[in-house]
Every structure is written in C-alpha cells, then in structure tokens.
Design a binder for these strands. Structure first.
Length: 273
DNA sequence: TCCTTATGTACAA
DNA sequence: TGTACCTAAGGAC
C-alpha cells in the first residue's frame, strides 16, 4: 500500500528488472488487454515517479515514448519474482515477464496507456514531490500560506505537495509539534522549511527501506525502556494507527478523528501549536 | 463465510 | 459530503 516512497521504489525496481529488455506484456484480468498487446515485446526504456504516479516508458527511440500510467490507489499492489512466473491469478491487471523476472500489478486505480502530452498534463496538476530533484518547496508554501484549510488536509492534497499520504502526514506533523487543525496560512516559512526537509529525509529513507520509519532513535521503545513493539504496517511510527495507545514521547493517549474522510492521528500534548 | 478495514482519488449532488 | 471503484487480509461468527 502506497505513499510516494513506494512509487519511487517501484520505479527503481521495475527499472532494475526490466530496463533495456523487451518483456512479454499481458493483462490476465483483461482490463488492459488491448494496450498490453500493443506493448508486447517492446523495449522498456524509462521509468519515472511523481508523487503516487508511476510511469513506465516504452520504445522511446521513435517519435514519442509510449507510457503506461499506473496509480495504485488504496488497494493496488505490485509483486516481483524470478522466472519461472507462476500462472497468473485472475486479478492480475498487468504482468511484465522477461527471461529472468516477472512482475504482477493487482488492483490499481489507474493502469492506462498515455502519450507524452497526457503524461505532461499529469505532472502539471501535481505539486512538488520531496523525492524529485526538480521539486520547488516554495510552490507548495505559496498555496499553503494563503489557505484557510487545515495543514493536515493540505498535506494530503496532491496539487499542493505530491507523494505525502496519511502516514507521512500524521508523522511529520507530530515530529514538528504542529496541531493538525492549524490553518495553512498560519504555518511560518521556518516551519515549512523544516517540514519539507524532514519529508525529504524521511521519504528517501522510505525508498531505501521500502517502509515508513519515523521514530527518532531516542524515542524507540528500547531507548525509552519499554517493551519492543511492531506496527502492523511494517515500520515504526509515532501516531499513525496508534489511537488510544500512549504517546511514545509523553504517554498521553493518541487521538484519532475523521478529517476529509481519512483517519487523522495526533498527540494532543505534543502537538499543541 | 461474512464483515470491516486500508498508506487513494474522482465525481455527483 | 457522500459514494463508487479496485483487492486482500484479519477478525468475528
């Protein structure tokens, strides 16, 4: 399940396994069959991620690259494996297979063939991505600092900042002691600069480790003299899905609430300002 | 076996 | 604001 770090990691992993090869492209589930037939045995020449959007570029020696645009949504999953590929189950939307590896995509919100122009339009409606070299954090701040919307909602708005999801949103606000209900316009430049650079660091580590870890070494259960624990989403976090559990820093009960149809988590003691 | 839940987004009203 | 969409895992029965 995906936030931006997952998608950037997938761009790397698709490249490692298939770049420069001309894989078999199939859609056992059927919804992508026509496009799969067009790309079957075409060379994968580029992979790219922007926020939660993944692009697989084929055949860019010709007039234009043909791109598969993938968005995992809430349920999408990708599974890599070595040859021989097992028979695909009937939910596999897209399978790539070459002589050494295969990869299956299941349950994506989007899996579509797009042109260079359509791809550019997708980039244009996304905000800066902390994981991209071309990102300009001031573009995000410009929107945030004139908005009365809560910072918690703004961080989830992909037009404002691309790639942050419900976990990084909750965790970065905790790490900076910011009340999630504060209006965007009340976030200072110093606060935003700190949030942005923290996201860059956290998300890069997320790409490396393929999971989200946000707990500083001094607050790990071991360092605090508490029994070790394991969050069921893979990484170690301060507040995400820890409602009613004691805050790792101050032991206050972590709170949860609905915000724009998503679960928000925060510590009412550590996040007062 | 059924129900709930999930790291997401788009569109209708 | 509510609902639809896509899948799989875990828990309740």
């Amino acid at each position: 399940m995906p936030e931006g770090h997952t998608i950037h990691r997938l761009a790397q992993d698709y490249a490692a396994a298939f770049l420069g090869t001309a894989p078999r492209v199939t859609s056992p589930q059927g919804k992508f069959s026509d496009a799969a037939a067009l790309l079957d045995r075409a060379e994968l020449t580029r992979t790219e991620a922007h926020g939660k959007h993944l692009f697989l570029g084929f055949r860019d020696t010709g007039p234009a690259t043909e791109w598969i645009h993938i968005h995992l949504g809430l349920f999408g999953k990708v599974a890599f494996g070595p040859t021989p590929a097992p028979p695909p189950t009937d939910t596999v939307r897209l399978r790539l297979a070459n002589p050494t590896a295969y990869v299956d995509l299941r349950g994506p919100t989007t899996c579509a063939l797009v042109t260079d122009g359509e791809k550019r339009a997708i980039h244009d409606r996304l905000g800066p991505d902390p994981l991209r070299e071309d990102a300009d954090p001031d573009r995000a701040l410009a929107r945030i600092s004139r908005s009365r919307t809560t910072i918690a909602a703004l961080l989830m708005d992909q037009k404002v900042i691309a790639g942050v999801g419900n976990v990084y949103r909750a965790e970065v606000l905790f790490r900076h002691g910011i009340d999630p209900y504060r209006a965007g316009k009340d976030i200072t430049r110093a606060e935003w600069d700190a949030i942005w650079s923290d996201l860059v660091g956290l998300m890069r580590e997320g790409v490396r480790n393929n999971r989200i870890d946000t707990v500083r070494p001094e607050h790990t259960p071991e360092a605090m003299g508490r029994p070790p624990r394991k969050d069921d989403h893979g990484g170690e976090v301060y507040v995400y899905r820890r409602a009613t559990m004691p805050c790792l820093v101050c032991a206050t009960e972590i709170r949860t609430a609905d915000l724009a149809a998503r679960n928000l988590f925060w510590c009412p003691t550590c996040q007062r300002s």
